[in-house]
Amino acid sequence: MSGFWYDVFTYGFLGRAFLVGCLVSLCSSLLGVILVLKRYSMIGDGLSHVSFGALSVAVALGFAPLKISIPVVILAAFFLLRIRNSKRIKSDAAIAVISSSSLAIGVIATSLSTGMTTDVCSYMFGSVLAMNQEDVVLSILLSVVVLLLFILCYHKIFAVTFDESFACATGVNVGFYNLLLAILTAITIVLGMRMMGAMLISSLIIFPALTSMRVFKSFKMVTISSGILSVICFVLGMMGSYFYSIPVGASVVVINLCFLLVGFLIESIKNKKQLRSSIKLG
């Protein structure tokens, strides 16, 4: 165990991955609570595929990956949100179309340029080695912005999520907050994707929120708990990846899954207790 912490603080790449991973887990779990409640979980998944496509094209053309993919994914997020309100095309179909097309474009771009190398594999399933110094600085800055905006707008975000029509009637600019949510989600997904992988990043958004909702019943507690839980799962997942030499993304997802199962267990025990006490009272 001490070997793990020693290596995190001495090997630059491990330390960087650890720091960025914790921040991204925190951001994605906070946003995740809202996305799950708004029934936007699949948007997170769709955006990660778009992010993969953009990243592959950027690398193939020799551009800096993050600077290209962040704006592309923000655009895609904006577009997906718009589609949700349109009656012409169903949003789940739209997400499926967009995610598989961008995956395809990404794969074509890589195979035309470098060929299917380990690079592609690391985009798909994540790698701790993917980050360089510049990425780390950008990731830290953006994560801090996401966190600050979330805290400052917490109550408005709550109101808009709980009841859009009421928020609208009290003069909140609902469209703006939905857009803000889309942008923050897009940024978080691009940042986390390198480490977690395009296939697995959406789990960071969905799992901690789901688990917390099993156990807690107030919005505040659900938000706080999923933030803490997400960071814990990431640290445990990274340890797992270190000790057993498995990809960090997969390891984090499995740990999250374990916590979710424990969450279900706690919920069912709680329900039974409640039932028993209500029978006693009755």
Binding site: H155, K156, F162, T170, M213, S218
Partner: peptide, 29 residues
């Protein structure tokens, strides 16, 4: 602003929030 009671949505049926959190959101403006 005008006090407004909208129709309930599906989404609210499993929304984790306490009664007080919901009521307080009326003070938003």
């Amino acid at each position: 602003s005008i006090g407004y009671l909208p129709q309930q949505t599906d989404l609210q049926k499993d929304f984790p929030a306490t009664v007080f959190e919901v009521v307080l959101s009326g003070c938003l403006k």
